[in-house]
């Protein structure tokens, strides 16, 4: 099957998922992001790469952090940014996604950044946009959140220097997590020798081993001797759907505490895609502790998103 996110020449046309992207391309994005790292530290935080381009943030599902970092990234590249919270506007009036896309195309959009509650929504929009428009998936259902996956790889590379000798544990609600799918895909592509998944059976998709991960039900075992621990957000709905009895019991079994963290390597880093539920999946002591890199993740997110946008617009990474 043809990968819809690559041009016939193998360049990035859309960013919909990390699944199937070659390691060289992932590294190229991370390298490009590295080159944008100093832009945020200048007095004039702008480069003119996307001057005159119109970027639409199409959020069919509410989000603050992701939308904001995309907006900042686009503005640092000198693009014009329009934010549309469609969850609260025309979709509720019965306009279809394709109508929305057609209308924005008529307003001379160059790039859509899409968040949607349905897996595959970004693929769907990418299939229907005009040839000059690029689509960036900012999270679709449970499927993928590629820029989050990339910024996590960027963070790991910064703190660990590479991927070759690492043991990484992803802990929590993998079943419902688009972040986890993008992370697992990137970690395995970039050659991490041991990717672990730690969760109760009710929060794991069937056949998850086929994604190339080792399964652990016991968190104390699962994070033992790990270099990187990635905590996933647990939503309250999971208690209603009979997947878990209570947040209290979940925290006891799978919440990251200082005591559990002591089982990992002494220099292990702790990551979280945010927003955090303190006292549910992570203890404040750890979230704010010396091994936490949760805030740097947010900072790096801007550089990574700049890199992706620049490469899609053809302005960077060549």
């Amino acid at each position: 099957m043809v990968d819809p996110q690559l041009t016939p020449q193998g360049k990035l046309r859309h960013l919909l998922t990390l699944d199937g992207l070659p390691a060289a391309m992932l590294r190229q994005i991370l390298d490009t992001a590295e080159s944008f790292m100093d832009v945020g530290e200048r007095d004039v935080k702008k480069v003119p790469l996307l001057r005159g381009k119109s970027i639409f943030n199409l959020f069919f599902e509410p989000s603050t952090r992701t939308r904001t970092t995309f907006e900042i990234a686009a503005k640092r590249l000198s693009a014009d940014v329009v934010n549309l919270n469609i969850a609260t506007s025309s979709q509720t009036k019965g306009e279809t996604i394709l109508d929305t896309v057609a209308n924005l195309t008529a307003m001379h959009a160059d790039m859509f950044i899409v968040r949607h509650g349905q897996s595959g929504a970004a693929h769907f929009i990418a299939r229907h946009v005009a040839p000059h428009i690029s689509v960036i998936n900012a999270g679709d259902g449970r499927h993928a959140h590629p820029t989050q996956g990339l910024l996590d790889m960027f963070t790991i590379r910064r703190y660990k220097g590479g991927f070759q000798n690492l043991r990484v544990a992803v802990v929590g609600d993998v079943l419902h997590s688009r972040v986890a799918r993008s992370q697992i895909s990137a970690l395995t592509t970039l050659g991490v020798p041991e990717v672990r998944v730690v969760a109760p059976k009710t929060l794991l998709p069937p056949g998850v081993e086929q994604l190339g991960v080792h399964l652990f039900y016991d968190m104390r075992e699962g994070i033992r001797d790990c270099d990187v621990i990635i905590m996933l957000r647990l939503q309250n709905e999971r208690m209603k759907g009979a997947r878990l009895p209570s947040a209290h019991e979940y925290f006891k079994q799978y919440g990251l505490t200082a005591a559990k963290l002591a089982r990992a390597k002494p220099d292990a880093i702790v990551m979280h895609p945010g927003p955090m539920n303190r006292g549910v999946e992570i203890d404040s002591e750890v979230a704010d502790g010396p091994q936490s890199v949760i805030l740097p993740q947010v900072t790096y997110g801007i550089a990574v998103r700049m890199a992706v946008m620049a490469m899609l617009a053809g302005g960077g990474g060549d």
């Binding site: 897996s119 449970r142 086929q210």
Partner: peptide
């Protein structure tokens, strides 16, 4: 179908 493809694509499964 609640199998490896749905797991990969994040589609809710019918076992």
């Amino acid at each position: 179908h609640d199998g490896p493809v749905a797991a990969r694509l994040g589609l809710p499964g019918i076992p």
